[in-house]
Amino acid sequence: MSVIPAAVSRFFHRTASSPHFYALADRFIPWLTAIFILLLAAGLYGGLYLAPTDYQQGDSYRIIYIHVPAAWMSLFIYVLMAIMGAIALVWHMKMAEVMLVASAPIGAGFTFIALVTGSLWGKPMWGTWWVWDARLTSELILLFLYLGVISLYGAIEDKRAAARAVSILALVGVVNIPIIHYSVQWWNTLHQGPTVSKMGKPSIHVEMLVPLLLMAVAFKFYYLIAALQAAKLELLKREASSQWVKTLLEKQA
């Protein structure tokens, strides 16, 4: 395409080549892991130890340090998957397909964490494990969308065709994302409204807020690590009999 500058297109073609991507992932993973562990340690120390006890919720509120970042990740990863789905459909970029497929189990994991920790938080605070309200139900639908992507991809033998199918599913399912986000404003619900993103000042003490943000960034780094690991596996599965895999094995031997 002539609209895209040559340098940009060269970068994408190189990153899109499997051996190049594989080597790049190997180079980045140790650094990403180091940053993740530092952020995680700081976030947990701040959240579980330094942050003061909430005057209404006692120490039960400390579940927030995984519940909220996990819920954010569940939305963030799905939006990324929809974007990669669009790229895969329009430009048939293989790496977009691979990253989409690699992201699905991680997104499903975060959605599951958000639902279960929410339940464990809801029991002492609301007096119930679960209610069929807008926020909880739309988040549960998100879990089913993730599981749908995983099983649809697994069910279709031809991986190029499978990737096209899940790209469409990811794109269609993205309508659920704004529904989840605005559900606490559109409908009456037990779930509390936004604490951090509220216009003006967030209604949370700074000693409570900082660990929350640290955990959120830590989870972003975790996502990169897990997605790269899954993408390496997916590439090998797809291209097991290719020359670059042969060369890779010879180098390792």
Binding site: D59, A70, W121, A230
Partner: peptide, 30 residues
């Protein structure tokens, strides 16, 4: 945890299990 240990710690434990599994499984499979 101010009496909320049965809710807080299982939350953290479950999170750890899910996050570790999503990294370890692809590595082992690869």
């Amino acid at each position: 945890m101010g009496g909320y240990a049965v809710y807080v710690w299982p939350s953290y434990a479950l999170t750890a299990v899910v996050l570790i599994a999503n990294v370890i499984l692809p590595v082992l499979q690869r």
